[in-house]
């Protein structure tokens, strides 16, 4: 686990330890299950560990499917039910394909929250809690376009797995922001949120077309890292770039001026607050149907876990920015989104 993640975890734990111990239930066993191995989700492990301690839960364990395959995730989820887990924070392997599995989980009495990615309505998940990826990609592209002033504003968009429910939203957002900002998306390279394909496709594109673009927007973790490294290797600051997430290579690239900035997400806050919400739902609280839910392309019950742009000036203290967002969401979460009888 990265030092950043640990630091974030420790600070988060200190921040929230005094806020919520009420209604803690040691019989609550929560599994935080991503779609597959990916650095974005690493913070969930620390978030679960902190939530277990702070809310006196029986368990809040990070369980990773072996591969990014729906079948692997389904098998893992089914085995976790048998192991006695009774609450799930789940990044859906497929927005529709996971609905039937979630139905089986909730039928077994375990509440489910879709975390970091949503299920397509209707589903038995309580709600979806994650980054408003459309907004994040849209704002990131706006920052990029602002940084490309005086150029032809030709953009390369590098993004994640096509099976990821968020990818199409990100593509739409970048296209929309480009259209509004007078820029053109010269190319969208998708399905490259893994080191092998990302290295191959991004480097090949830059080798052949570096002169045909003025900026890069990355809306997935691995393409951000690969693109940041490629720009550093080429040694050019002509091509502007806005990345996503907080990998060390990205943060250093921002500091050194190879990147304009990065759009930060809040995976720690997702895991921490999500665990808290699952415990509440297991102990008599209901979802507040009239809460101020946000709608997106998949669901009508979405909560934004926060996103913020970090440029060279903000990159050193971005943790505080995300913690502030997490603290704000947490402070009013139960009151806003849940109805609790006690």
């Amino acid at each position: 686990m990265s030092r950043l993640t640990k630091l974030l975890g420790c600070v988060g734990a200190l921040l929230f330890s005094g806020l919520a111990v009420a209604y803690a239930d040691p019989s609550t066993k929560i599994a935080l299950v991503p779609g597959g191995p990916h650095p974005y989700f690493a913070s969930w492990a620390q978030a679960g560990a902190d939530a277990k301690k702070d809310f006196n839960l029986g368990a809040a364990d990070y369980k990773v499917p072996e591969q990014w395959q729906l079948a692997d995730q389904n098998n893992l989820l089914e085995s976790l039910v048998t192991q006695g887990y009774n609450g799930f924070l789940l990044f859906p392997g497929d927005p529709v394909g996971s609905v039937s599995t979630v139905q089986e989980l909730t039928d077994s009495g375990a509440p489910v929250i879709a975390l970091a990615g949503c299920l397509k309505d209707p589903s038995t998940a309580s709600f979806c809690f994650g980054t408003d990826v459309y907004r994040s990609a849209y704002l990131g592209t706006q920052h990029l376009i602002a940084g490309m002033a005086g150029t032809k504003k030709r953009i390369l968009h590098v993004t994640g797995f096509l099976v990821d429910p968020n990818t199409q939203l990100r593509i739409n957002a970048v296209n929309q922001a480009a259209k509004e900002g007078g820029a053109t998306v010269a190319e969208t390279i998708a399905d490259i949120d893994a080191p092998g394909p990302a290295e191959e496709k991004i480097n090949a594109y830059l080798a052949a077309h570096a002169n045909d673009i003025d900026g890069i927007i990355s809306t997935a973790w691995v393409p951000s890292v690969v693109s940041a490294n490629a720009l550093r290797r080429i040694g050019t600051k002509r091509i502007k770039m806005v990345a996503i997430d907080h990998d060390k290579a990205v943060l250093q690239g921002v500091k050194d001026g190879y990147l304009l900035g990065t759009m930060l997400q809040n995976p720690y806050g997702q895991g921490y607050i999500g665990s808290y919400a699952i415990d509440k739902l297991r102990n008599g609280c209901k979802v507040n149907a009239s809460a101020p839910w946000t709608k997106n392309a998949l669901t009508a019950r979405f909560i934004d876990s926060g996103t913020v742009f970090a440029g060279p000036e903000q990159v050193d203290n971005y943790l505080q920015s995300m913690q502030a967002i997490t603290k704000t969401i947490f402070a009013s979460f139960a009151k806003t989104y849940l109805i609790c009888s006690k």
Binding site: L70, A71, G97, S100
Partner: peptide, 12 residues
């Protein structure tokens, strides 16, 4: 039937 959907990636 298992997934309630026909998904291209369902067998990897």
């Amino acid at each position: 039937a298992r997934n309630d959907a026909a998904i291209p990636s369902m067998a990897g």
